[in-house]
Design a protein around this nucleic acid. Structure first.
Lengths: 208, 208
DNA sequence: ACCGCTCTTGACCAAGTGATCAAGAATTAA
DNA sequence: TTAATTCTTGATCACTTGGTCAAGAGCGGT
């Protein structure tokens, strides 16, 4: 038989516009949520007409899923790099630090996920139950090992991970509240990082 | 002059239906957010027709604001009752416990606020900068006093409060993720309470 | 029983929104 | 240059949704 029909390659314009769209979609979806965002908003935000945008992504939901998947991988990288061979306190401290800086530098991604999960995680439910659960279970086992060796105080590893997620992402997801209460001083995130690492490592009860 | 015109009292039916509406509105708004929720949904959910519902609250936003205000007070009660005369560790432990149980028993209120703040807190921005900030500042001062007396480790009180809010509300706001990762065992919230109190008090670093 | 007031609703409207389509403009490979 | 392919858009549709309105039903005080 002859050559198989060439699979349609991605055009220069295609790649370029899809990138534009995903960037604008992150902006809009993170600010207004899936229902709250409009296709027109996204189109205008990246300088395309609405029908043109729908030429690249046929349905609004396709854009949403694409931008979710596009950011998910990066978001979990810090946990992935938790090193079983490292020193436990140092590893977890580093994880907290990396995570809080990620929230500071990419609050939109944080809010996008927060909104998605807050409303039932219908688009990424399968991902949570599959790859995410696997990754968390793996890292929880590592932490459990450290605890068994007496190198960490006894805490449930899963809940520890939840606590780190919650506290670090809080600064992105609840930014208006944080700003309202603190008045948003310039050293806010610096102080947050210090306080969280210290709190998780040392706890509140004074030592000896 | 004669008697001032009597201010229109609240009818039996009025009070009854407004309560119905607020209950249904909490349900719907917490699940779908402000934009995602429809007036029809709320009306159907409490057995009223849409025009009838709009007879009691003229605009969708009025319902939203009403249900927010209706729940705000209760939500802050635990922090309000943090006792400056109490034993610091016991007070904070109690606060964490109360807060996590509130999240467990009223996750809808938690998600309602989470959604509101996540999307800019336009409806309660003034409240955050006013009464909430005052309350938090007051309690932060108390905690700072405890630290100065050497009865707590040195942490920034505001960020400590944020950490407690974030970790406890996480179980309501991110429930699908928590469920997906843990498989939702029956003792989940029990374990969460244990882990969080222990983590905040003792920290991760083993003691001597 | 009567009357004023409150409550309820079917019908309707205007605006907004996701999505389609046909036709034309731009790009690309020969 | 040319012809096929990709890209772009104005016009339009079907549907949803917040909100209105007039007319009637129900209720409470006398």
């Amino acid at each position: 038989m002859g050559e198989a029909k060439t699979i349609p390659r991605k055009t220069r314009i295609q790649a370029q516009n899809e990138e534009l769209i995903l960037k604008a979609a992150l902006e809009v979806f993170s600010a207004y949520g899936f229902r709250g965002a409009t296709v027109d908003q996204i189109a205008t935000s990246c300088g395309l007409s609405k029908p043109n945008l729908l030429y690249y992504f046929r349905r609004k939901e396709d854009i949403y899923v694409a931008v979710l998947e596009h950011t998910l991988h990066d978001w979990l990288e810090p946990l992935r790099s938790l090193d079983p061979a490292g020193e436990p306190i140092a590893e977890i401290t580093r994880y907290i630090r990396t995570k809080i800086r990620l929230s500071r530098d990419n609050p939109k991604a944080s809010r996008l996920f927060a909104n998605e999960i807050l409303h039932g995680a219908t688009a990424i439910g399968a991902y949570l139950k599959g790859p995410l659960k696997e990754l968390v279970d793996e890292k929880a086992t590592i932490i459990a090992g450290w605890i068994a060796e007496g190198r960490l105080n006894t805490v449930d590893p899963h809940h520890l991970i939840f606590a780190i997620w919650a506290t670090t992402q809080h600064y992105a997801d609840f930014e208006p509240q944080v700003t309202a209460v603190t008045g948003n001083p310039p050293d806010l995130m610096q102080k947050a990082e210090e306080t969280l690492t210290r709190l998780f490592v040392e706890g509140l009860r004074p030592r000896s």
